[in-house]
């Protein structure tokens, strides 16, 4: 599924564009960056309610192209700037992590 389509399902705002036409193959949900580093895979979307710069650094290392921040949490300006430099897409949705996961699961995405 394309990042653009995910955006529609989650009614999400795009804060940094990155690669919008990139295909997302699966989802990883975690607020623990060490877990993302261990289990994260490329072409995934990371769903998290943590919004600091380390989330961008983490996905950069694992080569995850997009992050979705839940609960309507906006990241700091610095996080957005870093995401722009690293070409990472940031989405923000008002839905909770549970709701986001449910919606994407229902849309056929797997972990």
């Amino acid at each position: 599924m394309k990042i653009k389509e995910l955006c529609q399902i989650l009614n999400a705002k795009i804060l940094s564009s990155g690669h919008l036409s990139r295909e997302i193959k699966s989802i990883y949900v975690s607020d623990l960056m060490s877990d993302v580093l261990t289990f994260g895979r490329e072409a995934q979307l990371l769903i998290t309610s943590l919004t600091n710069q380390q989330t961008i650094r983490t996905v950069e290392m694992v080569e995850i192209p997009a992050i979705c921040y839940t609960n309507g949490k906006y990241p700091e300006k610095k996080t957005i700037e870093l995401a722009n430099t690293k070409r990472v897409t940031i989405l923000v949705t008002d839905f909770s992590t549970f709701q986001v996961t449910g919606k994407l699961f229902a849309a056929g995405l797997q972990g």
Binding site: D31, L32, M33, S34, D35, L37, T38, T48, L50, N52, Q54, T55, T58
Partner: peptide
């Protein structure tokens, strides 16, 4: 608070 410190770091490096 930064999403680390769960005691997985060294293990992860080893892996």
């Amino acid at each position: 608070e930064l999403g680390f410190g769960a005691g997985m770091g060294l293990q992860n490096i080893k892996n």
